Simulated scan of single mutants.
Amino acid sequence: MRPLTRNLIHALKYRSIPGMATYMVKRSCAMKGLAVHQEMALLPKPLYFVPIPLHPARLRERGYNQAEKIAGALASACGGRVWRLFRRKTFVVSQTKLSKEGREWNVAGAFEMVPQKRIPACGTVIVVDDVYTTGATTTSCLGALGNDFPLPVKVCTLLYDEPATAAADFAADNRTAWDSL
Rank of each mutant, 00 (worst) to 15 (best):
K32F: 04
V25E: 02
P3Y: 05
L34A: 06
V92S: 15
G80L: 09
P53T: 02
P18A: 12
E112F: 11
G146D: 09
R175F: 13
P53C: 09
E68M: 13
M31Y: 02
L159W: 01
V114P: 02
L42Y: 05
M31D: 10
V127K: 00
M1G: 04
G109A: 06
R84E: 08
M31E: 11
Q38L: 13
R84L: 10
A41T: 01
A144D: 09
D173R: 09
N174F: 06
K69D: 14
I17E: 09
V92L: 03
A67D: 03
L34W: 08
A21Q: 10
W83Y: 11
L145N: 06
A71R: 02
A11P: 01
E162R: 15
I70N: 02
N174E: 10
A41R: 08
F111C: 12
R88H: 13
T22C: 13
M113I: 15
L158M: 04
W105N: 10
L54S: 04
E162Y: 15
V153G: 05
D129W: 07
I70F: 02
G102Y: 10
T165Y: 14
A167M: 11
K97H: 08
K69E: 15
C29M: 12
N174Y: 05
D129G: 07
D161S: 13
I52H: 07
L74Q: 00
T134K: 04
T165F: 10
D161L: 13
P115E: 14
Q66I: 06
V92G: 12
A177D: 12
P18W: 04
L54R: 10
A108V: 09
L159G: 09
T157I: 05
R6F: 07
K32D: 06
K13C: 00
K69G: 09
